[in-house]
Each structure stands twice: as structure tokens, then as C-alpha cells.
Design a binder for these strands. Structure first.
Lengths: 360, 360
DNA sequence: AAAGCTTGCGTGTGCGCACACATTATTTTG
DNA sequence: CAAAATAATGTGTGCGCACACGCAAGCTTT
């Protein structure tokens, strides 16, 4: 393949300067005459120099503090997976002098979010990874970090207003689109398809509305039924349900399932809480209603095995955490280019392929 | 989190010996009295020493030669992806002194396989990654490598006879099982489901028969139709087709599609060549026949977009190559434990989530 | 014009480890 | 019992790089 890698020393020799000078142009530390600078750069080109990252990490005692702001994994089980992914990345990057500090906030408390984001900012980290569940409150922090030129990476929720270093997560729109396919595929008869939002502040949560748009667009683009064939086009309705402990949650669901005028074909739950809907379908013996949701939570998996949930879309939370941290490390430690958008795959999970996705 | 990492030097100090002695017990180079040895080991325990791999890679000039034996990527497009994955791994590991040499063989030529495996062996590598498509011929090589204690990793095709360091790839049985689900899901009416093997030497290719077993078992475990409900249980038939250039390929397919006594519901192609079947379905306008196959080849993707192929199962060839190389590196370079079985997920691909899987 | 700056370079040390080599203790041998 | 052999341990160098420092020459100051 290649000859033994070229070193700073080789460039120095070729350019008739010392290694110190090469180092200076390499890191733009100034104190080099333009003439020499150009010469060194030319030599680096010619020899196709690539710094030895191993040696670099060893030689520099530079350390990087990363702050992670995400919901507490002890409160909501979904957040265990990104937490683990972040931990894994932290372990691998420890040798490169990277330290990761967590700032967990309470999923539903704006104040907690603000407090932890503030704490993270105060710690003056070299980079920030954040799951910005609260749209409005996030923007102010983005602005501050931008002003202080602290690179920050978004995950789980995409906010495009201020340009972050990178976003790691799913394409919410396409994710809803896919959900449409999964809920409708193979069902020839016309009928109603439901998209259910559970305990979501829709107005302050962009990606949920994107999922709904995708879902609706899937049905909109379906070919019209053949002329003469039975059936009107599919009917899509959306419903915003409260927290499942709220009595109106059960009331609304029961009313829906009791209503014999709607031909319910499928339900798409826009969050990881499909397991809250599943018991109702089971109670009503509605095996004919397709149920699609998100994420491989234990309770979801249970209903997947019971054939109540038909498909789960895996949001790859583990990867989101892992790659989120690595995006920062790539930027800071390895000086690599970081793509501004890293869409994780929309894994389709059924009972049959589940086992290869859990516990990665 | 943790204090600054402990170094050899720290252990040496704590045990009242020199770093050289610690180094000797660390690498089992002998020349250390048992008493001191135990003491040093105890100190390492106490301080929870973990070697700094960065420094290790730098300090030792040790290099590792890896040999990869896989089908030529220029002949069959499927093999491009593992090739790329291997290349990516090679690039990342280069700094750790790992060099990867490819020994491509001709997919269908046993002699070529043997010749390249022989060449790889002759090069006396430190580790071998191999896609052992030819069952019988592989065994002899495994035995030799075992005798010479060269660690070898299998990918793509699992052979359990001799214990390799690791296998990276899919669970073929479950993969067939999943294919059954995909081909049947949502189809209430009874009928015939076909599993098609294209140009495969089934007798000498274990994983194809495993796929078929899984496929058949899926239908066997389906709940029997409700009493009084219409329909006999699904009928599964298998067919071994020759190379598509062979005139009998077209003849057999045409006969099958012309036969009006079979209610064909779906076809599962056990290899990546679903695109060879798709044109026939298209010509016969059999949109009702579900088609499921493997891998994101350009031609398959084409028919996925045309709605002729309904699902593709992604074998993750890129990951197979990447992780295969890393399994060897983990063993040799990083002295990590390597799991003997690394099942890659069975990704379900549709038109809607395709884009996030191509070009990873 | 002497004392400061600034610029443009070279030198030296250390990061944690591997490994060759030097040195000192302990046996073995003639 | 001294000499030789061997076992046990210590020392030193280099891997490629970052970074602090040193040093000379030209340039301002007052």
C-alpha cells in the first residue's frame, strides 16, 4: 500500500527548516515568514502528509470537556439508550483526553431544561451535545453558544433556526411517511387511519408535527383507487391525547373504539408510547387494527410479541448518543469535517428481526 | 469521572520496582521472580490499571498483516460493499500499524478460491478474514490456520465445524423466517409462496438451505385459519433456477407464471438476485405477487422504486467487512475479547426508508 | 545609542509505552 | 571458593507530536 508514513521531521528536512517551524505552520501559530510558510505547505502537499493522530493525542496534553444535556434516563426509559451510547463513546474517547459530563433534565419541565442547559454553559465546555426538546428555550442557548463559538451538536430533535455543528437523528418527516406505509401496507379496503400524539406539547415540539406531515403525505400520494373499484380514499385523522393517567385519555380512546361509524384500519403513535394504546386494542379484540409506534422499549416489545403492535420504528437512540459525541470529537480532537446532517436509518422492527436490534 | 489515568510508572512506584519489571509481567516475558510478579499484579488490580492503547501503538513499532479472502468486487456487485467496509476499517487501523491485503477470488470458481486462500496462507499473515463460500474447501484451510494458530474471522457465510475467532454476518435461518413474514404479511387469502434459489450450488452452500428452513418454518408456525374461515394453509414450494443466462431460466419462470392452477402470492429470492425475477412479474403484470429479496444493489433498488420488489433484506455487507476486520484488530491490537458470534441486524428495506441505508 | 520590542527561527522536553541493553543478585560449576 | 553462567531487575532510547523556551537579527523607542 503506502510507504512508511511521512512525519513532520521529513517535511522539515525537505523544506530545510526545523520541525518547530513546520509545527508552527501546521497549527497556524504565526511567527513564520510567508515565504517559508508557503514552502512548507508545498512540501506537505507533495509528501501527502497526514498527521499521526495517535502521536498527536499522546504528545499534546490537551483535554476536551464535553457537556451533554438530555432528559434524565431514570425518569423516562427511552433516554437510557442514548445515555448508554454516550457512555460508550466517552469510554472510547477517554484516551484521547475527552471527558464527558452529563446534565440531565426532567423531560417535562421547561425550568429543569433551562437550568441544566445553563449549568452546562457555565461549565465552559469545549463542546455541547443536546437534545433540545423545548424549541423556544433552546434558541437562546444556541445564540449564546454561537457567540462564544462553542460547537454544539443536536440530537433527537432537529432545530434548523440556528446552524448547529451537526444534527444526529432521524428525518422526522420521512419517519412519519414510513409509518404511513407500515400502517397501510397490504390493506386493500378503505378506512380511517389515526395518528395519535400522547402527552405532547405539539406547538413547542417541531418534530412531532413533521411526523404528522409525513404521515399525511404518505396517504396523499397513494394512487387513487381504480375507477369502479370499491372505496373512497383513506381517511386520516389526528388526535392529541393527554397524559395516560388523565381520565380523559381512556375516555377518548373508548369513544373512538366504540364508534361503529369509523372503519379504523390503523393507528400510528407519534412517540415511543404505543404501549399505552395497545391494551385498549387488546381489550376490544381489534386484531384488525394495525398499530405502529416508535422505539424498542420493554413495554413496546411486549406488545410486539403479542401481535398487538405490528411494527416499531427504531429511532436508534443508542447510535444517536454515540454518534453525537463522536461528531464533537471529530471536530475538536480529530479536526475532521463533520457533516451538518447525519440522518440515522429508519429501522423497521418486527417480532422476527427484533432480537438483532436490542442490546447493541 | 476518573482521576488521571494510572500509568506503568505508578504501578512501578507502588510496587517498589522499575518500569521494566512491570513491563515484563504485563507482557509475560518472564525473567521476573514469582514474588515480585504477584506483587505487581496485585498493584495493577488495586490501581485498576488500563494500558494506554494510544501510547502502546506509538511506542511499539509492531505491525500486523491481515489477509482478506473474498469474492472479487469487480465481478459481482454485491461484493463491492464489504470491500469498501474493509477499506474503511483498514484506513482507520493504519495508524495502529495494521496493513490489510486483499486476496479476491472468482465467485463461482472453486479453484480460484483455493488458490487465493492458499496465497493468503503463504503470506503468513497475523490474521485472516474470509468469506468461505465453499464449504468443503474451507474446512481444510481452517484446520491449517488453527494448527498455525493464525486467528481467522468468517463473514457472510457461517461455518460452525471448526471454531473460528468470530463470525460476522446474518443469522441465515432467521433471515429466511423474516422473509416469510414479509412475503405473507397482510395477505389473508390462502395460496402458494415460492422460494427461489438462483444459480446456487445448494449442496455446498449451507446458508442458503438455512434460509429455506427459516422460510418454511415461518409458514409452519402460522396459526391455522379459523374453523369455517376460507382457505387451506399456505403452500410453500422451492425452486432451484439456473444462471439467468441459461434459457431454461426463462422457461421455468414462464411456465410458473402461466400456470393458472397455482395461486401465487409471493416469491422470496434467497440471494441478491431478486432483480432477475422482477422483470417477469412486471411483464405479466402480477402486481399482486409479493417479491422479497436481498441487498441494496442498484438493480434491486430500481425495482423497489417500481413497486415490483416490495421488501429487501439488507445483509449489511459494508458492516460485515468493517466489523470483520475490526474483530481481528480487537483481538490482535487491542487484546480485547471478541464475541464468537456477531449477528448483524436484519434490516427491512422499503422504498420509504431506503435512502438512509445506501451509501453509509 | 542603549534599552527595549518584535519577528523568525531552532532546540529540548515530555506524553506512556515497548524493547534493547546494562547492571546487579543469585546459582552453578570446575 | 573464585569464576562463569544465569536469573532478576534497572536504565535508556525512541515512537511522532505539541509546546515552552531560547536565541539572534532587525526594528522601535526615548
Amino acid at each position: 500500500m503506502e510507504k512508511s508514513a511521512v512525519r513532520i521531521k521529513d517535511i522539515a528536512a525537505k523544506a530545510n527548516v526545523s520541525v518547530g517551524t513546520v509545527d508552527r505552520v501546521l497549527h497556524n501559530r504565526g511567527r513564520v515568514s510567508e515565504k517559508v510558510r508557503q514552502k512548507v505547505l508545498r512540501m506537505m502537499e507533495e509528501l501527502d502528509y497526514e498527521p499521526n493522530l495517535i502521536a498527536r493525542a499522546l504528545g499534546s496534553n490537551r483535554t476536551y470537556q464535553l457537556a451533554v444535556v438530555q432528559p434524565d434516563h431514570l425518569i423516562d426509559p427511552y433516554w437510557q439508550a442514548p445515555w448508554d451510547g454516550i457512555g460508550k463513546a466517552a469510554k472510547e474517547l477517554k484516551q484521547y483526553g475527552v471527558t464527558v459530563t452529563m446534565y440531565p433534565y426532567e423531560l417535562t419541565e421547561v425550568a429543569s431544561f433551562v437550568a441544566q442547559a445553563e449549568a452546562a454553559t457555565q461549565s465552559a465546555p469545549d463542546g455541547i451535545l443536546i437534545a433540545p426538546l423545548f424549541y423556544r428555550e433552546s434558541l437562546a442557548f444556541f445564540a449564546r453558544w454561537q457567540a462564544e463559538s462553542i460547537p454544539y451538536v443536536l440530537f433527537n430533535t432537529y432545530i434548523a433556526e440556528l446552524p448547529a455543528l451537526s444534527y444526529v437523528g432521524q428525518d422526522s418527516y420521512q419517519s412519519g411517511f414510513l409509518a404511513g406505509k407500515l400502517v397501510q401496507f397490504g390493506q386493500a379496503e378503505p378506512g380511517t387511519y389515526l395518528i395519535a400524539h400522547i402527552a405532547e406539547d405539539i406547538a413547542n415540539s417541531l418534530h412531532v408535527t413533521q411526523k404528522e406531515r409525513g404521515f399525511r403525505d404518505y396517504f396523499a400520494q397513494l394512487p387513487a383507487p381504480a375507477p369502479g373499484a370499491p372505496g373512497a380514499p383513506a381517511n386520516v385523522v389526528s388526535i392529541a391525547l393527554p397524559d395516560p393517567t388523565d381520565p380523559s385519555f381512556a375516555r377518548q380512546l373508548n369513544r373512538l373504539l366504540d364508534d361503529e361509524t369509523v372503519q379504523l384500519r390503523g393507528i400510528f403513535v407519534s412517540t415511543s408510547k404505543a404501549y399505552e394504546i395497545a391494551p385498549y386494542l387488546q381489550a376490544y379484540h381489534r386484531e384488525d387494527v394495525r398499530l405502529v409506534g416508535y422505539d424498542l422499549l420493554e413495554k413496546n416489545i411486549h406488545f410486539l410479541h403479542e401481535n398487538v403492535i405490528d411494527f416499531l420504528i427504531n429511532q436508534n437512540p443508542h447510535e444517536q448518543g454515540y454518534q453525537g459525541v463522536f461528531a464533537l470529537a471529530d471536530q475538536l480532537v480529530f479536526k475532521k469535517e463533520v457533516p451538518p446532517l447525519k440522518y440515522l436509518p429508519l429501522d423497521i422492527i418486527t417480532k422476527e428481526n427484533l432480537r438483532y436490534y436490542v442490546g447493541e
